[in-house]
Amino acid sequence: MDSLWANIFRTTEEDSVHNLLRNIPLFDGLSRGELSGIASVLHRREYAPEEVLFRQGNPGVGMYIIREGAVDIVYEPTGDTLAELEDGDFLGELALLNESPRSATAIARDSSILYGLYRPDFLGLVEQDTDLGVQLLLRMSQVISKRLIHVNDQVQVLREQLEEKDLQRG
């Protein structure tokens, strides 16, 4: 009997991908059909610990969503870890819009499962379904504008610190 209820309420692979996508700001609020469209173009990849997702300087081809595991973002010249990403986080989303080289290297810290969304597939979805395309591009611009605000705040803080140092010297 338990197995019957377990079967009725089990989460299918599709459901779990939908849940994962709903937590990404880019896809938040999309309908089930629209999420299925996006899920149909995702590439499921499995990485071993220390395995490289992409290297700094290589052309950016798309974004990744972490389903399980952890990924470090490393700045190669210094070896500094810029960010530690975990389940539900996403990376490389700017590569959905242009082909600019990767600004850092991404390395799996643990055994990880990720979903890759490739730029031509993303642009194909945008072209195929104009309504979905508008929503996706709007969300993308929101993500970028939030990041710009964050960067502006950081620049402001650094400028203030610099001015303080100048005052102390002067």
Binding site: V52, F54, P59, G62, Y118
Partner: peptide, 25 residues
Amino acid sequence: GPRMKRGLIRFVPNRYFEFSLQAIH
């Protein structure tokens, strides 16, 4: 076709994954 293509790309080692996607495109 698109599903078959994704199925074949699953066999590509991670190291060549992004390169293969771009090359195929």
